[in-house]
């Protein structure tokens, strides 16, 4: 009974410019950083993890290995929330 819901949970998230995130599935709300917001929006558009990392390297002028570690940590958080 959970599979169908889980597949759409990331794209169902409601985001605004200030990083406010509402999960319509659970009714929970969250605040994410600007970088987190960029990640979420990219993932909602269907970007791959490599594409998300590349976008952050370009926009933040940070080494790729550092960005990759931070993105992996963020993705782990998203998995804990059932969004991935």
């Amino acid at each position: 009974m959970t599979g169908e819901t889980d597949l759409t949970r990331l794209e169902d998230l409601m985001l605004n410019e200030r990083g406010f995130v509402f999960d319509p599935n659970t009714g929970e709300s969250y605040q994410v950083s600007g970088t987190g917001l960029l990640c979420l929006r990219a993932l909602q558009r269907g970007a791959s993890i490599d594409e998300v990392v590349a976008q952050l390297v370009t926009s933040h002028d940070v080494e790729r290995i550092t960005v990759r570690c931070d993105v992996d940590a963020f993705l782990w958080d998203l998995k804990q929330l059932g969004w991935l």
């Binding site: 009974m1 959970t2 169908e4 819901t5 169902d12 509402f22 319509p24 599935n25 659970t26 009714g27």
Partner: peptide, 19 residues
């Protein structure tokens, strides 16, 4: 969102869960 001491919902938000 907000539960009174009698368990009543004094504030609630619309959700959509297929379950």
């Amino acid at each position: 969102l907000i539960v009174s001491d009698k368990g009543k919902g004094n504030g609630s938000v619309v959700v959509r869960d297929l379950r």
